[in-house]
Write a protein that binds this DNA or RNA. Structure first.
Lengths: 219, 219
DNA sequence: GTGACTTTGTGATATAGTTAACAAAAAAAC
DNA sequence: GTTTTTTTGTTAACTATATCACAAAGTCAC
């Protein structure tokens, strides 16, 4: 089902969900058309960058007019596989994990946390925000059973690698790592690190050492 | 007190806290020396990139030997202002906010969440993880009183801009925004966006459309 | 002390990402 | 229907980042 696409730059790919969300907002406000300049104001991305990003997918706009919101939205829905649901597992139901469960992402969205895991017996067997929590012992068994190949890792740092090894065993494809550990995985598995302590520290570094001018946001 | 430094690339600056943390680990393991190759293995950053990063600060290593862990650690401690504490406010004590409060960053770290704000009367007046929670009405008053100029924003998206306007009033300098909203701020204020829904969505997009090869991590 | 080995620091190069600027096309005004 | 205005799509230039590859300077073994 994955449509073959000319490879777009990663920086562009990272902005697509953002565009999609704001187009949704515009749509529900009843807007029919939007220019790259307007969109730029909303998402805080240079308008030339937006036009460039869109152009990787062909000529989506019309000169002198802008972009048709509905058309663009439909196009991105397909491109971002918004009709196909990706099931995600959450490993580690601590404070951060619980935040994710309560948040859950299925709003205008194509991802859903289907299952959670923890070692805490008081959590095992319960549900948080509709998501059932299982014991970590059942990790492999349940992931295979449910056919889940994406995991969010929110466990304590010291056990991060051990659990990662189990996830590899369970044939996971992608791992969104919120622990401070840098994980060892085979090259076939994609890992993104989101390191909140590093984010805060480097942010403070920027504040002290760089004159701020609203540039260089994360995401 | 801010030492005047030749401007280093932002990409390098973002990696510094990471290096610092792993050097700390090595130090507490009793390691005396480390090569860029070893460090590369640990932090998953190319060894040439590490050497280049370090070289912006001068010749910190020794050929044929590597880097002295203690020396490097001391150097980065100064560079990252680890002796100077930056006080941070947390705005919005929901699930994610609570996760931050319980996490708190002051481990080997130069940042501390000093104060929290929420509108929920059951939370106001309590403390979470040692951090007192005040009502949002006291935002400006308390921030000015405590001399806090960095805030973490974990409020619901619809009120993000309103509260941001209050933070601007309170003369904030930096804002780490965890809401999906793209905030309007004057150019003198630095904003970093960390958009968890976008992270997850773009991650899933990468998984489907790009052959994974362990590259291009988010910090 | 000598030769083999290690590892840095950095020029050169490659790769990626952003932005200015503008012709071309269409829309809007009249 | 003509002119003015708007706005795209893209070429070209620029800026940033990552990586290769290697001389230079040391360490290490004996």
């Amino acid at each position: 089902m994955a449509q073959e696409q000319i490879r777009i730059p990663q920086a562009t790919a990272r902005r697509l969900p953002l565009y999609y969300r704001f187009l949704n907002n515009l749509h529900s406000q009843g807007k029919q058309r939007v220019s790259s300049a307007e969109l730029s104001e909303a998402v805080k991305v240079d308008s030339a960058t937006i036009r460039r990003d869109f152009s990787y997918f062909g000529a989506l706009g019309k000169k002198g007019y802008g972009y048709n919101v509905n058309y663009l939205l439909g196009f991105f829905r397909k491109t971002l596989d918004q009709d196909e649901l990706t099931k995600v597992a959450l490993i580690g139901v601590g404070n951060l994990g619980t935040a994710f469960l309560n948040y859950n992402f299925l709003k205008n969205n194509n991802t859903k946390i289907e299952i959670g895991f923890d070692v805490d017996e008081t959590k095992v067997g319960t549900s948080i925000g509709d998501v059932p929590i299982y014991h970590m012992d059942q990790l492999k068994e349940k992931l295979v059973e449910e056919g889940i190949s994406v995991a969010i890792l929110t466990v304590p740092a010291p056990v991060a690698q051990i659990i990662t090894d189990q996830l590899i065993e369970a044939d996971i494809k992608g791992l969104l790592n919120f622990t401070p550990a840098r994980l060892n995985v085979p090259p076939s598995i994609r890992v993104h690190h989101i390191d909140l302590a590093v984010e805060l520290q480097s942010f403070v570094y920027f504040l002290k050492h760089y004159p701020s001018n609203e540039k260089e946001d994360t995401i």
